[in-house]
Design a protein around this nucleic acid. Structure first.
Lengths: 186, 186
DNA sequence: GAATTCATGTAACTTGTTACATGATTTA
DNA sequence: TAAATCATGTAACAAGTTACATGAATTC
């Protein structure tokens, strides 16, 4: 259900097309919640059925007409109810294929593992640069009155991403070192 | 597909029932890959069809007969091929409802958010204690010749869990402090 | 007396992924 | 000239969740 509420929250900032929502998600919440475009279109349909959103069509010549979705009063109420209703226990779900492989790392040549850990580290460094860029963008949004107050919270989640990237890089370094120095590990 | 390979990797240590596999997963890889029992049974069926596993039945009086699954040579080959074939890009998927709510935190009473962050912190502290316990268990497994070499890799993934718990606790503290000191955030 | 453990599963449902289809415009 | 961008989706499939069913033995 969270995807539906994430969509509601996003169009609550301003009315958007499915395509826009996908881009907003990719920019803003991708590292803790992602979705495919096809899934977004499906959920927009479901939200429309429940009258949580309505759409207005904007004609276009060379492209499919834009369907701009906005949140309704019913949708706003549902969103507010959902957002304050934290689940009893934390429901974070991680699916990390990389860690699954590492767990069974005894079956992987040591050099290959070190290579993959270095690649992992590079990706996390790139991720960190992206987060720095996000930080700049959020700063710029403080001039936008509609969302100025929201930037405070965006920064809290961003901080989480940044600290995860940093700790991932440190962890990768440690793993590489341990692998390089181990005598009997492979 | 990763679940099938995780199952293969687990019964590669020793033959196990679906129920056992679930428990092994919960103990060892839960924080980066989890699955429901029903899903494990389904995947065991799929693995059996592909002849990656076989099962022998152990009769029981008061309970359903045990179906003990073991990996076949075909399964071992498939597992080895999979495990060295790291995907081009990191495919980690995180679904974190807590962060989604925090992102839209402007719609949440400040006191409620602080309360939830404190609860989050407590859960992470509990998680950390569980990881400490895992560390002890892994240490004990070093005497078990069959898996002694694997413990090195189990510790690498465990380290990741531990550092994530620690950094989560620090992050929660920071968030709480920022919320307590902010003037215009809500 | 109620909940948990052990042990199997099925069925229905929801969520997420991948491939396909259209087609002009712009960028590399 | 190939790929990416914009903009809509559908269809088929894969993966994950929840509820149900059985039932003795054990623990709280």
């Amino acid at each position: 259900m969270s995807l539906q509420y994430a969509i509601l929250g996003i169009i609550n900032y301003m009315p958007q097309t499915g395509y826009d929502i996908k881009q907003t998600m990719d920019r803003a919440i991708n590292f803790f919640w992602s979705a495919q475009l096809s899934q977004i279109y499906r959920e927009l349909g479901a939200l429309e059925k429940k009258a949580y959103v309505v759409c207005t069509v904007e004609k276009q010549e060379t492209r499919p007409d834009k369907k701009i979705y906005s949140i309704t009063d019913v949708g706003k109420t549902a969103f507010k109810e959902w957002i304050v209703k934290f689940p009893e226990k934390n429901t974070t779900q991680i699916k990390d294929e990389f860690l699954v492989r590492l767990f069974f790392g005894n079956a992987i040549p040591k050099e290959e593992l070190i290579f993959q850990l270095k690649k992992f580290k590079k990706e996390k460094e790139e991720e960190l640069r992206m987060f720095d860029h996000s930080e700049e963008q959020i700063k710029a949004m403080k001039n936008n009155e509609i969302v100025a107050k929201d930037t405070f919270y965006w920064n809290l989640t961003l901080k989480r991403g940044i600290s995860d990237s940093k700790v991932s890089i440190e962890w990768a370094d440690e793993c590489i070192e341990m692998l390089e120095n181990c005598k009997d590990c492979n």
